[in-house]
Simulated scan of single mutants.
Amino acid sequence: MAAYVLVPGFWLGAWAWRPVAQPLRERGHNVHPVSLTGMAERAGQARPDTDLETHINDVVNLLASRDLHDVILVGHSYAGLVITGAADRLPERIEQLVYLDTGPLPDGMSQNEFAPPEQQTTNAELVANYGDGWQLPPPPWATLAAPVPDVDEAAIEALTTNSVPQPWATATSPARLTGRWEKLPRLAILCTFTTEQVRAMAATVPAFRHMAGDIWRYAELPTWHWPMFSRPAELAEILDGATR
């Protein structure tokens, strides 16, 4: 039996992991899905100063309060920064890091800086015009899912109903890392990239420089960026295999 801590990306909460958490529990694992500060049932805690450090502290506090050890720490999308920061604080509690269609960014880089310039501009306009200057509204899920045959109406309804705005400071605050996390084993589950693409980018793009080396393993799960909704059974199978 392994201990999994599942950390969601932008707009989501612990609820997003239900299709994955259940099959992992049926395999006998101890599973801890996380709702970060200001997200899901904790939406009322959102503030303009809710930032990346806030969310890193959420995970650090969960590991400590539940006395979790030998943890498989899973981060989806933006949460790649969160799990890297938490592992940098408590590397002795982590067995391995799993990056779900994401990766660790270098010290000093923010999630917003990783986005292409045109996306940065669009997001800034959304925050200014529809997020009271400090929140990024959820995307139009039905439009995003339209080209993806694996996403059913129930998944779109769940995303549309349960997503909440993302505190924008979580995207603009930089990662602050000491390097203590760098010796931990890592698995990248790639949905919108191939292994070859990631290795090529790691050799040429500074933002990807932490994604190469013998410490990495890669698993490909071709689908959209939210595989817990499009291919949850296969994702649970890959996560279960991370223990072997």
Rank of each mutant, 00 (worst) to 15 (best):
G213I: 03
Q166I: 03
I189W: 01
T160F: 01
I189S: 00
A188D: 11
Q166V: 03
R217D: 10
R199D: 02
A212S: 14
A169Q: 11
P174F: 05
A207M: 12
P174N: 06
V205H: 12
A202S: 13
R209K: 13
T172H: 07
R176T: 14
L184C: 11
Q166S: 05
I215D: 15
A169M: 08
A219Y: 01
T192G: 08
L177N: 03
A169L: 08
N162E: 15
L184W: 12
R180W: 00
A171G: 08
V164E: 02
A175M: 02
R217F: 02
V205F: 05
L187N: 09
Y218K: 07
S163T: 10
T172L: 04
P165S: 09
A203C: 06
P167R: 00
A200P: 07
A207I: 08
P167E: 02
A188K: 09
W216F: 05
L177A: 04
Q197T: 14
T172D: 08
W168F: 15
P174L: 04
R209C: 05
I189Q: 01
W168E: 06
G213F: 03
P174W: 03
L190H: 06
M201Q: 13
K183L: 05
T170M: 07
P174T: 05
R217S: 13
Y218L: 04
A203P: 05
H210Y: 15
A202C: 06
C191R: 06
T204H: 11
T160S: 14
A203G: 14
M211H: 13
C191Y: 05
P206A: 10
W181M: 01
F193C: 09
T172K: 06
K183Y: 09
W181I: 00
S173P: 09
A188M: 15
L187R: 10
L184Q: 12
A219H: 08
W168S: 05
N162T: 09
R209A: 12
W181H: 04
V205W: 04
H210F: 14
R180Y: 00
Q197N: 11
A212D: 12
R209H: 09
T194L: 07
S173G: 06
T195V: 14
T194M: 08
L177D: 01
E196G: 08
Q197W: 06
C191V: 06
V198Y: 02
R209G: 01
T161E: 15
V198K: 01
E182S: 15
R186S: 14
W216T: 01
A171L: 14
G179W: 11
M201W: 11
R209L: 00
S173A: 13
A188E: 12
I215Y: 07
A171F: 13
L177V: 04
W181V: 00
M211A: 12
L190P: 05
